[in-house]
Simulated scan of single mutants.
Amino acid sequence: MSELLSALIGAVLVNHLLLGLPAAADMPRHARMQALGPAGALLILFAAPLAWLLHRLLPADLGYLSLMLLLPLLAGLSWLSLLLLARLRPSLVQPAGLWPLLLINGASLSAMLISQALESFDLALAVGLAAGLGFWLLLQLFADLLERVGQCDVPMPFRGTPMLLICAGLLSLASLGLNGLGPI
């Protein structure tokens, strides 16, 4: 039980590559964030257990091919998560260019790679759920931070991309303070 709890805490709070992505600078705009958060959470929720199953189904001598199989699986799952999100929440506006953002999502690939090392399917499913919710939480925090900064009087050289990088650095430092809580 303690292993499950530490895996959940680590997946929600610590193991996210969202803040280190160069494409993350464009993500937190309100319309994109409203669709990208749930779509990313669904993608990670599906990706982690499927990666665990794929790892268990591959013969031991073909383990080096797992990454080559995970990438097409990730492409199909990102399309499926957008389709499922459109069916579950038809009122949610899905802006153009959301599918490529899901494809380059480092959090989903890292959740897939982390889940391959886990012992049981239940644990992989729990990590997928927790990592998806953590991704959504980080996106929301990043968007809120950028909204607050947008209301401030920022000097001209720091407007735009420099402020995005500063905000991403601050969130990275905040999540780095939680490092060590998870098992991974």
Rank of each mutant, 00 (worst) to 15 (best):
S81P: 05
L101S: 12
M68K: 02
L165N: 12
P59N: 09
L83W: 14
G63F: 00
P100I: 07
G63Q: 15
P90V: 07
L70F: 07
L129E: 06
L164E: 15
L146C: 14
L77Q: 07
T161P: 03
W136N: 07
V154Y: 08
S81G: 10
R56K: 15
G97N: 07
E147R: 14
L123Q: 11
L138P: 00
L50D: 05
L165H: 08
A96K: 13
L62G: 01
L118C: 05
P155T: 10
L88V: 09
L54I: 04
W79Y: 10
S91L: 13
L146P: 01
W99R: 11
L82R: 05
A117N: 10
N105I: 04
A107E: 05
S81M: 07
S110D: 05
S120K: 02
A126C: 03
L88K: 08
P90Y: 07
A51E: 01
L92I: 11
I114Q: 05
L82F: 02
L103R: 04
L145S: 14
W99I: 09
L58I: 04
G63I: 01
M112K: 06
M112L: 06
A86F: 03
Y64L: 14
M112F: 01
D61Q: 03
G132Y: 00
L50N: 05
R148S: 15
W136C: 13
A130N: 02
L113T: 10
D153H: 09
H55M: 08
R159C: 14
G128S: 08
P95F: 03
V154T: 13
L129F: 09
L67W: 09
L62R: 05
P157T: 08
W79N: 01
L125E: 02
L54S: 09
G97D: 10
S115G: 09
C152N: 07
F135I: 05
L125R: 06
L98F: 03
T161M: 15
D61S: 01
I104A: 15
I104V: 15
L133E: 02
G76H: 12
L141K: 06
A143C: 07
L57K: 07
L139I: 12
F158N: 12
L71P: 04
W136F: 09
L164I: 15
L83H: 12
A124P: 04
G132Q: 03
P100D: 07
L69W: 03
S110C: 06
P59Y: 00
L125V: 06
R148A: 15
H55G: 14
W52T: 06
M112P: 02
A130G: 11
L84A: 15
G76A: 13
L83N: 07
L129N: 06
S81Y: 00
Q116W: 02
L83I: 08
L65W: 11
L83E: 12
V154N: 09
M156E: 15
F121S: 12
L137S: 11
A130S: 11
R148T: 14
